[in-house]
Nucleic acid binder design. Structure first.
Lengths: 237, 237
DNA sequence: AGGATTTGAGCAAGCGTTTGGTCTACAATG
DNA sequence: CATTGTAGACCAAACGCTTGCTCAAATCCT
């Protein structure tokens, strides 16, 4: 029997920030996709913030706090205390708390959208592509960007309307990629049900994994990818 | 192609309270389980609050607000405005805002736990039992108790520690029922994977349904139950 | 020297909650 | 039949605290 952590409820309970181990890279989804390469590339061309800069320090600290305490429970003073920057100074780097939230979400989806596209380019055959979708999303959810990704899923309602509109475009592009592959997979009789319904059920299943899945336990991210693949295809190979 | 509502993101965006149609009863899960009978029984013996009493009005209004705006975004003044009771008077019925949240969660799980047990008594055979688990949980999530159930899943972190401990007992009993049936199902080779992992994946998939599933669309709750059943067994009958 | 950054005091608004009192319905009392 | 007692429901105002955010002055860095 595999150990997969405590009950989802108990897992959710703590407010303290735990430093969970980051899952290992999935070889089958393309070894380069989860490397630092893509991230560094995006930092270099200015698409995402350099984590070493003050802006980046604030950003990553905030993402972690938002994830573990919730956006509304996290005060600007909390971010200040954790970064060693006084509360007032935060607003030199960001216009508002909302802008921090927006940036956390925006950059996490930019990074993962890029990873998704690159990984798909490297995947040949529909089955491989499907597995890539799942592996990348599970890595987005539980890997290094896990905190930011969870914030995007869970704190959506706290975004300002303008920020929602912007990020929605990126999310729709992301969903479009999913649906495209799923529709092809269905055409080949690979799926257990309609692509749009399947996508939403799988999305829910994967969004929920951070509440119970821990890297370093008996279950690896690759194992988890296998299980979600089974949900999608019905086949247990 | 079935219509299953807009994107999950867009669905989540609104803050206004929409009156969605309540899904119709699943005949296959036992016709009596979703009727008013069990609810009335529990009201009569004092297990849950009479919705006609002032306490009950506050409770249901709060559940709806918590669901659509979030617990922290919902002020006691909001609840007052919506019920026609002045903010201060809320505290004549509840000691604190936290007690309202706790009561919303507690009563929704008491009701649905009772429904689950009754429905299982009426189900014969493992396949029927498995389908019952799914049907009852989907009804808890999207039926009349949907708002309260979503609050329990989504606002857990905002509960006081004592309240968490109490409700955790009920949730563990609920999870125990699920695991018991799943373990038997696995013994008969009915499942696609390990019971504990499957349960968590299915839980996530079902928790997410309120963000995209609407009763009255092309997809019924029974149809949805079929799809989740397929996820669990891999079979598309 | 001069722009970028940091500081720390502080503001206005909103929050959950408390308080002291009123209103209404109804049963008990004289 | 009129009066009093009682208890639940509700009201109006305000208290103490926290919040996101501002700003003028001080400090750093090149």
């Amino acid at each position: 029997m595999l150990s997969v952590g405590g009950s989802p409820v108990a897992r959710n309970a703590g407010h303290a920030i735990e430093c969970d181990p980051i899952p290992t890279v999935s070889e089958r989804a393309g070894p380069l996709v989860f490397s630092e390469e893509i991230r560094n590339e995006l930092i270099e061309n200015g698409s995402i913030t350099d984590p070493k800069s003050p802006r980046g320090v604030v950003l990553n600290t905030a993402a972690s706090l938002f994830r573990h305490k919730g956006y509304l429970q996290t005060t600007v003073r909390d971010i200040g205390r954790e970064t060693g920057i006084l509360p007032g100074s935060i607003f030199h780097h960001y216009r508002s708390k909302d802008e921090i939230l927006r940036t956390v979400m925006e950059e996490s989806i930019i990074l993962n959208l890029t990873r998704m596209k690159r990984a798909l380019e490297q995947s040949q055959g529909l089955e491989a592509k499907l597995r890539t979708l799942i592996a990348v999303e599970l890595y987005a959810t539980n890997g290094e960007t896990g905190e930011a990704w969870s914030v995007m899923v869970g704190e959506w309602r706290n975004l300002s309307d303008e920020a929602k509109a912007d990020i929605l475009k990126l999310r729709e592009e992301y969903e479009g990629i999913w649906l495209g592959v799923l529709q092809q997979a269905q055409a080949e009789g690979m799926l257990t049900m309609e692509p749009d319904i399947l996508r939403k059920l799988l999305a829910g299943a994967m969004h929920w994994t951070p509440t119970w899945f821990r890297a370093g336990g008996g279950l690896s991210l690759d194992d988890l990818t296998d299980r979600v693949m089974i949900l999608a295809t019905g086949r247990r190979d």
